[in-house]
Design a protein around this nucleic acid. Structure first.
Lengths: 305, 305
DNA sequence: AATCATTTTCAAAAATTTTTTGACATGTAC
DNA sequence: GTACATGTCAAAAAATTTTTGAAAATGATT
């Protein structure tokens, strides 16, 4: 009879296709993880993984085992959580994936507030603007813009927020202020990469008619926070959520552009796995962030033309 | 994160209301089991059991935890079994509860045949004529006479077999042969105890009409094998399944009585828990016993009048 | 009421298991 | 081709679990 930790490890190895990566995540050495996996395979008398030095792939048998192992572990996790829940305790680890800019500059502080109230809660934040697989990421919650289509996920909408074009006053003084989205092509454009390719279609609306402009960037990167920093440094025009730039605009460090051509607002959603009823700590975090978003809305109303 | 063995132990402690009993069953010392339980409770940060020195009772929280723990463990067991199944291997432990007489004198030999063919299979037999709780007994299969009413159990009928009254020729020579069930009350009667009270109503039939006679025993015990030994020793008349006495009757050591008044045959059933799809080893055992019962039927046909 | 046979638990020692350490062979990326 | 990361190995070190022997507690029995 094997150790539950070994099962958890095997599941993560299957998710990440890597012993080392799983070991790092679970805070153990690769050697120890390798030994644990072999232990498990030996006890099951079955080779779960087909190994090449560079890649771990589940065997057919391994697939079946890991699948139901995942179910069982989820049940057990739920049972443990339920115990803590009943006592109304907020303890344990909370793993959250966040968009880089929103995460660093706004949500991080909110979550710090939450953990100040609940000191037994351990926070693990994963910043990034790539829409990675929630299972692979192994987080409880992922905060993401836009509609998610993965049906295995539950979602809770926190807000709907406009995307806006912004640039620094210095840049605009030098290069002029575009008065229509079509004029953007004559500007330096700062793009966010999603996946491998820049996200180069910006959405606006002209008298309620959708208007999409396709742009080539003078700079692009995969981190939304860096895009904003470029904009602040006068490197060009960025297309950001109002969430991300409200404060800078209020302070006058960034300037709103093309507010007559705002497209429909984009939802900001919190997604989580459907496999388990969210535990007390997760539910609390969801509600907390929902409150904070509401407060944000009234503190920073988007200046309408 | 706790050890799976600790969960299994906790489940058995909950079933048996005893650390020691669970420890004995799982082949560990009470001290080690106690330590393991405390380890688990500590890791869950929750008292699973309300303890008195003499009795372990699940707390409300413990109940919830053990319930889903049981599910999870069953899933995991199933996953492990499935691995062995796929390879068509017959290995692991097989725990079977058997009626005392049938078990000792017939099925044991059959099962020895099975394990001779499958040497990796470990047999654990539990003899007894008390219809104990299958969950509490923790067996894969229980062989029982009669209709079971517990709906959480699956059943497979192995045979239908008549109950017959038997006694040794010596006894009958001395006390005479009853020619009608009603005359049994003038005889020495050997009864089987089920639960605390003797099972003193014997069923016959007179021209297809059920005929039940209520008897007082001159001897009774809770073990069917002992009842047969009494009958062989000429202590009186016993009421047994034809399975149990076919060989002795064929050899002339017991004599069939009242064969004109046989009641409906009673089913012999193999019951197992519904929680898991039976594993390969369990299915194999079921089929094997079914075959053996069929072979028995043709080897020892009940002599009809 | 007192004894008895069990039961749970404890603490220290012993045994077992797991992790670390340092190394090596192998495959991938540049 | 070189540099780097990966999976595994063997021995040592560390951590965990089990045993051992004994003590305290409790329900049953006398």
């Amino acid at each position: 009879m094997y150790h539950l930790k070994d099962l958890q490890l095997a599941i993560r190895i299957a998710d990440l296709h890597s012993v080392s990566a799983a070991a790092r995540e679970l805070g153990m050495t690769p050697a120890s993880a390798s030994a644990a996996l072999q232990r498990l395979e030996h006890k099951l008398n079955c080779q779960l993984f087909a190994r090449s030095t560079r890649n771990m792939q589940l065997t057919e048998e391994g697939q079946a085992f890991i699948d139901t192992g995942r179910q069982a572990l989820s049940l057990l996790q739920g049972a443990s959580d339920a115990l803590a829940d009943k006592r109304g305790e907020l303890r344990g680890e909370l793993r959250i994936a966040l968009p880089s800019d929103l995460g660093r500059n706004r949500v991080r502080a909110w979550l710090d507030e939450l953990t100040a109230q609940a000191p037994e809660l351990t926070l693990r934040l994963y910043f990034g603007d790539q829409l990675d697989d929630l299972i692979e990421q192994n987080v409880h919650l992922a905060l993401r813009y836009g509609e998610l289509q993965d049906s295995s996920l539950m979602r809770r909408q926190l807000a709907r927020m406009h995307r806006v074009a912004v640039a620094s006053p210095e840049y605009l003084d030098r290069h002029g202020r575009p008065s229509h989205p079509q004029q953007l092509s004559q500007h330096k454009i700062l793009l966010l990469n999603r996946g491998n390719t820049p996200w180069h279609k910006w959405r606006f609306a002209d008298k309620r008619q959708p208007l999409e402009v396709e742009l080539t960037g003078s700079k692009s990167c995969n981190d939304g926070a860096v895009v904003k920093e470029w904009a602040l440094a006068g490197e060009g025009i960025a297309y950001k959520s109002w969430f991300d730039v409200a404060q800078e605009v209020t302070e006058g460090r960034l300037e709103l552009l093309l507010t007559d051509y705002l497209a429909e607002p984009i939802p900001l959603q919190l997604t989580y796995l459907q496999t388990e009823y969210p535990s007390h700590k997760v539910r609390t975090c969801i509600e907390f962030l929902k409150q904070k978003c509401l407060a944000f809305d009234s503190q920073y109303p988007l200046p309408k033309p």
